[in-house]
Computed example of a mutant assay.
Amino acid sequence: MTSGAVRRVRGDNPWEESFGSARAVAAGDRVLVAGTTAFEGDVLHGEGDPYEQARAAFGSALEALAEFGLGVDSVIRTRVYLAHVRDIDAAGRAHKELFEAVRPVTTLLVVEGFTDSRVLVAVEVEAFDAGGPARRP
């Protein structure tokens, strides 16, 4: 990472307060978005549907990137966490629809579970800010 200001953005996730973390952080020419699920407030989008949860989670992560003036074209890495190996194809289809044109490096992990058993998918996103470092205030 290049040197420059570090900027943190908070979200509305209650874990941020209890863990002392940020929704997203810009440091130099990189923006990192924390683990994101399909929750919006108390509503879980796509309950029981890994494709819809992946779409919603990535949509939320991209909204966090937008706080820094960045979009899907700046994404260089994604991580997809799944509760079940059976959901690989559904999550992969959602990922491809969003990122096929930019083709970020991607890591896919099957985990033991999430803090809410209804969550099937969580994602992380890392972006490169070509106009950086941390060009926004």
Rank of each mutant, 00 (worst) to 15 (best):
V102M: 08
E52M: 14
R8S: 13
V9S: 12
L109H: 11
D87I: 02
V33G: 02
R93F: 12
V25D: 00
P104T: 13
V123P: 00
R23M: 05
D29Y: 06
V111E: 15
A94K: 02
S3M: 15
D12Q: 12
R86E: 06
E52S: 10
R103F: 07
L108G: 13
E124P: 12
A64I: 04
F114M: 05
D12A: 08
G132V: 00
A83Q: 07
F19G: 11
L98R: 13
V80W: 01
E100I: 11
A61K: 00
A27S: 15
D49T: 07
E47Y: 07
Y51T: 07
V110M: 12
V119W: 00
L62Q: 02
G92P: 03
T78V: 08
D116L: 07
R8K: 06
G132Y: 01
V111M: 06
L62G: 08
A94C: 13
V33F: 01
R77A: 07
G11I: 04
G41Q: 03
V25H: 04
A101L: 05
G28D: 02
A122E: 03
A24W: 00
E97N: 13
F128V: 11
V123I: 09
F39V: 04
G48D: 13
D129K: 11
R10P: 07
V43L: 14
E67G: 08
G11Q: 05
G41D: 14
V105Y: 13
D42I: 13
S21L: 15
G59V: 13
E100T: 12
N13P: 05
E97R: 12
G132H: 03
R30L: 10
L98V: 15
G11W: 02
A26S: 10
A64W: 00
E16W: 04
R8M: 04
D87P: 03
R79C: 09
K96R: 10
V85C: 14
A91V: 05
D12N: 11
R10H: 08
R77Y: 09
S74V: 00
L109A: 08
D129N: 11
A101T: 10
A90V: 05
V110G: 08
D73R: 15
D89Y: 06
R30M: 14
E126I: 07
G92C: 09
E126A: 10
I88G: 13
Q53C: 04
A130R: 08
V72L: 15
L70P: 01
V123L: 03
F19C: 14
F58S: 04
D89W: 06
R77T: 07
D49A: 10
L65G: 00
E97V: 15
G92Y: 03
L65T: 00
V80H: 00
N13C: 11
G4Q: 03
G71A: 06
A130P: 09
G46K: 00
L82F: 02
A122S: 14
A54M: 14
G132K: 02
